[in-house]
């Protein structure tokens, strides 16, 4: 995680304040190419705000977010973002949604790429159905396809398991495992400790805006992680 030539995103003393609320506080974090980093934390810890700042949707109050050697955080097209919302149009079909976003991102053969992503996510049979008729699981896979359409350097996943049943969660985990095997750089926020641990190579715990725990997956005992998580969140810094 410390090889400077492999660094993709570097967050330095990033702080975000909304009125009197300090949502994110002095966060230093380095994400390297190929990292699969899971951020755990209780509700209100500032995880989503942190991800929105990395995506460029929200500007930090202070601190800097640098992509590779760029000083300016302007690489909107380098990030794929899966949030609580799908960013999909319910009145358009799955294929139309992906072709639309593909064109916005300037992908030359947008339709071909969209078809390819639909096959990859197992949605080829539903490509002419309107997204409003999709199940939550199908919609979430299409959301992931939308986020990956332009081959982003960094994939941001904010609670992707929300609203998925066990079957949907399992399919989604398999898709994420595939992304990990491809060597994609992923920043995942989840309350699902089991799924997060299964996938990630790096672990971060955020609480009250601060990053209170950072370790590589190998340093953490999976069977003892829940106890460790509560100890860190309830006990303060580590």
């Amino acid at each position: 995680m410390s090889d400077p030539s492999n660094s993709l995103v570097l967050l330095s003393r990033v702080t975000k304040i909304f009125g009197l609320v300090r949502a994110v506080l002095d966060v230093d974090l380095e994400v390297c190419r190929g990292d699969f980093l899971a951020i755990f934390g209780p509700n209100g810890a500032g995880k989503t705000t942190l991800l929105r700042m990395v995506s460029g949707l929200t500007q930090p109050t202070s601190g800097s977010i640098q992509f590779e050697s760029n000083d300016d955080h302007s690489g909107r097209d380098r990030v794929g973002y899966v949030s609580h919302q799908s960013f999909l149009y319910n009145e358009l079909t799955g294929l139309e949604n992906l072709v639309f976003y593909g064109r916005l991102y300037g992908i030359g053969k947008a339709r071909g790429r969209a078809e390819e992503m639909l096959v990859k996510m197992g949605l080829q049979d539903a490509r002419y159905q309107r997204v409003g008729t999709y199940s939550r699981g199908m919609k979430q896979r299409l959301t992931l396809a939308r986020a990956l359409l332009h081959e982003p350097d960094l994939l941001l996943l904010d609670e992707p398991y929300t609203g998925l049943d066990q079957h949907g969660s399992r399919i989604f985990t398999e898709v994420l495992k595939g992304l990990k095997e491809e060597g994609r750089t992923v920043l995942l926020i989840t309350h699902n400790l089991g799924a997060g641990l299964e996938l990630c190579g790096q672990i971060v715990i955020q609480n009250k805006g601060e990053l209170v725990f950072q370790a590589s997956r190998g340093q953490v005992d999976a069977s003892d992680f829940e106890r460790l998580y509560f100890q860190v969140v309830e006990g303060g810094r580590r």
């Binding site: 097209d77 919302q85 960013f87 999909l88 149009y89 319910n90 991102y105």
Partner: peptide, 10 residues
């Protein structure tokens, strides 16, 4: 559905 964010992020 947050599609405005989808547009802004492009």
């Amino acid at each position: 559905e947050g599609t405005l964010y989808g547009l802004i992020l492009s």
